[in-house]
């Protein structure tokens, strides 16, 4: 597996806090190609700490590509150059010796920077809190096999539900639109029989919240799908559009 170390020079965005002005700082490191991208940053941080300097703030948790915590824009691409992986799954073997690497935080008005590469993505949760659920209480539900669901539909719902909520779609979109994220959740429930009772109201309240939070509009460039670590399809956006238009036009609410 392991080959010779590679040398890379990095330009990393440093910003002390939400209101301060940030800038790029330069770092150089020699690292094993088997190390992950975040392990490379760990090494830099260890080095900084041992020199009594403030380490670079960046977030990660599971480092298996499922929790959605990590997210860096690497050379202009959210989660870096390899498709369908999260930043934590990116390995240094994908970079060549001497490659310059620019690391920036996800940038969007709705994702304010907390520090360095850490951004606040709580807007996503706010959207989910307005409708990203099926309104049932614990207990008193029918048997799990009471409603058969075709394998294809379950599979499509799973495709949409695979979203890890990392925000790469927003980061990639030239309009910082959250449509892919929102549509993935809307689609999951729109596809399943359990989601039908609230289908129309759900899409309306989630879209309203999304707009309120300052995400941009979708202009169908499909950059979101290209950068999504889980390959969530833009057909979910089409489904959400359809549902939203239908709900707005046909629902009884005149509000």
């Amino acid at each position: 597996m392991s080959g010779k170390n590679i040398n890379v020079s990095l330009k990393i965005w440093r910003q002390d806090g939400p209101k301060t002005v940030g800038s790029f700082a330069e770092y150089k490191i020699s690292i094993s190609p088997d190390a992950s991208f975040l392990e490379m940053l760990d090494e830099i941080n260890n080095d900084l700490e041992s020199k009594n300097q403030i380490p670079i703030a960046f977030e990660s948790d599971c480092r298996e590509g499922i929790c959605g915590t990590c997210g860096l824009v690497i050379n202009g691409q959210p989660h870096g150059p390899i498709p369908k992986i999260a930043t934590c799954q990116l390995h240094m073997r994908n970079f060549k010796d001497g490659d310059p690497i620019w690391i920036e935080p996800f940038r969007a008005k709705a994702f304010p920077i907390i520090k360095d590469l850490v951004v606040d993505r709580s807007g996503f949760d706010e959207i989910l809190q307005t409708g990203g659920y099926i309104s049932i209480n614990t207990g008193g539900v029918p048997d799990a096999n009471a409603i058969p669901i075709s394998k294809d539909i379950a599979s499509l719902a799973m495709d949409a539900a695979a979203c890890i909520g990392c925000g790469a779609c927003v980061a990639a979109c030239k309009n910082a639109s959250a449509m892919l994220f929102v549509s993935a959740k809307v689609s999951q429930y729109a596809l399943l029989p359990q989601g039908q009772p609230e289908r129309s109201q759900r899409v309306q309240s989630m879209v309203a919240k999304m707009d309120e939070l300052g995400f941009g509009s979708c202009t169908n460039t499909y950059a979101c799908e290209a950068e999504c670590p889980k390959g969530i399809s833009v057909t979910n956006i089409a489904r959400m559009n359809r549902d939203y238009i239908k709900a707005s036009v046909t629902s009884n609410s005149v509000e």
Partner: peptide, 26 residues
């Protein structure tokens, strides 16, 4: 509105790797 949704731009623009130029330049 869409410009406002990203007040600070990226230093490196990687959009050529994820979308077509005509879709971005409507």
């Amino acid at each position: 509105e869409n410009k406002k949704a990203r007040p600070v731009k990226y230093a490196v623009n990687g959009s050529s790797k994820n979308s077509t130029i005509y879709s971005r330049t409507m």
